[in-house]
Nucleic acid binder design. Structure first.
Lengths: 200, 200
DNA sequence: CCTCCTAACGAACGATCGTTAGGCAGAAGA
DNA sequence: TCTTCTGCCTAACGATCGTTCGTTAGGAGG
């Protein structure tokens, strides 16, 4: 059921287990002792590896954010190399990259999407900024496509938000052992997204 | 900022305040004393009106579920009256109904979408069943549209899930005092949805 | 053998959690 | 005026929370 991995470090194992529990029950409803229990340890023993509970959440959210950012950056660069300035290809690449990150680690992605609210004020604000910058990648490409007439919609802000809602939703229903492989899920979402934007 | 309403009953006021706090901080992170404090009461005083914390959550979720179900039922009936069996009109009506419920009470809708996981096993299972029955309304209409060739997509299950992800996302970004009135938001989402499904 | 390090342990702290119990002020009805 | 009910209060319960602390078992290096 759950993939067994040789953990690179104890710290990383803690974050992986925490991702899973945070996704299933939420940050607030998951106790330090729950996380420790899943690793056959006592609660306080975690503090040899971690400085606070929020610290664990932050590590997960920060890493997930970085994964989304890197994947999107790479996707845009490659799309521009091969189809310079083509908004359709750029959006397709962004969607595929996003779905890839989500399906690559559903737990981490879910936590990033839903649990960042539990962070303290400064970190929450930082995450909000990064989310907006990330969404702006999509918004910009949609705007480009409208400008050259390949997209038939009128409001790029709403379109970008709707697209990202749909993409983030994948984290809630994708099952690595389910009917559809990750690549097929990405195919479907690219198709639906482009169809939604297309001019006819 | 927050609309001031003459509350029908103390019980209802508690649920409204709880909706708001659950939406902002989540069920687990909201204490009975937080809810009471927002009503200028002491925590234990709530138990004169409410039998448990989960009871409050359940009341909110159950009412929200009922609102979605009633709105969808009415929308489908009206669509079938006027455009019997037209999947395009039916989907448009379902989308408009869903957005209407969400924008009508963002707090309640958010709690319904995100916090049902915090319910006990029986109630959570019941909500899951109702969610699936609700999603099936969309899935069925999408399937109908594919069958008669007005929709050009291939996987009705994914399409229905993606649509609902996007619609539920509205609860996360819609602002009653924002740039777009609820009706305009509904217009955009109907347009985007139909475009996403359409055969060309 | 001694020392140091790692990784965990169990006890315990203060705070907060949901919840129960009992009391008190004021309005309502006899 | 006396009683009853309503709505809220304070005190307090046991449980659990995140976290700190001192300690211990075991292995590595000298």
């Amino acid at each position: 059921m759950v993939q067994v991995v040789v953990e690179a470090s104890r710290r990383r194992a803690i974050e992986d287990v925490a991702s899973d529990l945070f996704r299933k029950h939420g940050y607030a409803a998951t106790s330090i002792r729950d996380i420790a229990g899943a690793l056959s340890m006592q609660g306080p023993s975690l503090y040899a590896h971690v400085s606070s509970k929020e610290d664990v959440l932050w590590a997960i959210v920060d890493r997930a954010a970085g994964r989304f950012e890197n994947a999107a950056q790479l996707a845009e660069e490659r799309a521009d190399e091969r189809h310079a300035g083509d908004p359709v290809e750029a959006i397709a690449a962004l969607v595929r990259a996003h779905v890839g990150v989500v399906t690559g680690d559903v737990g981490e992605a879910s936590v990033f999407v839903h649990e960042w609210r539990a962070l303290g004020d400064d970190r929450r604000a930082a995450v909000l900024d990064r989310r907006d910058a990330y969404e702006a990648r999509f918004r910009r490409r949609v705007t480009d496509g409208i400008a050259i007439g390949v997209f038939g919609i009128t409001d790029p802000a709403i379109a970008a938000t709707v697209i990202l809602s749909a993409l983030n939703g994948v984290a809630s229903w994708y099952d690595p052992n389910g009917r559809l492989a990750a690549e097929r899920v990405a195919d479907h979402l690219v198709g639906l997204t482009l169809r939604m934007l297309s001019s006819e």
